[in-house]
């Protein structure tokens, strides 16, 4: 298990994180510019549910809820954040896999009867 985690960790040069803000985020100085993707979140979907990016280039995912608070977890990484309720700001995740691959994400906070349908994929090409 620990070996698997170590292997998974080596896939990412930057896996970042977040913030909950009421506005757009700006890259820190010296930081590689990111592809920005706005994701609308509601029971029980992420729109878009498929995010395409270039491996090695960071993507900044801005998540805004239309109803309750949700979670955003990328399987196999340590990214697992809370998306605030409607009208309470945007959660932003910065993600940069350095190898092509498919990374599944899901809602990690129980949000209703159809919670299990809230999934999506990041495709790094």
């Amino acid at each position: 298990m620990i070996r698997n985690l170590t292997r998974a960790g080596s896939l990412f040069t930057i896996v970042g994180v977040l913030a909950i803000s009421s506005g757009a985020s700006t890259p820190a100085s010296g930081q590689q510019p990111a592809q920005i993707v706005d994701v609308t979140v509601e029971r029980f979907s992420f729109t878009p549910s498929e995010i395409r990016m270039k491996a090695g280039t960071p993507v900044e995912i801005r998540l805004r809820s239309e109803d309750t608070d949700h979670g955003f977890r990328i399987a196999g990484t340590e990214i697992n954040i809370t998306i605030p309720k409607r009208g309470r700001g945007t959660a932003t995740v910065r993600f940069q896999p350095d190898k092509p691959g498919r990374y599944e994400f899901e809602c990690s906070k129980l949000c209703g009867a159809g919670h299990a349908f809230m999934r999506g994929t990041i495709v790094a090409e």
Partner: peptide, 25 residues
């Protein structure tokens, strides 16, 4: 090693943000 390799950071807040919270994943 995983934690260090995986999380380098990033959290930037918009100007004017009033209730920001930065978390380590």
């Amino acid at each position: 090693r995983f934690a260090l390799g995986a999380v380098l950071f990033v959290a930037a807040l918009a100007p004017g943000t009033t209730a920001a919270q930065t978390t380590t994943p």
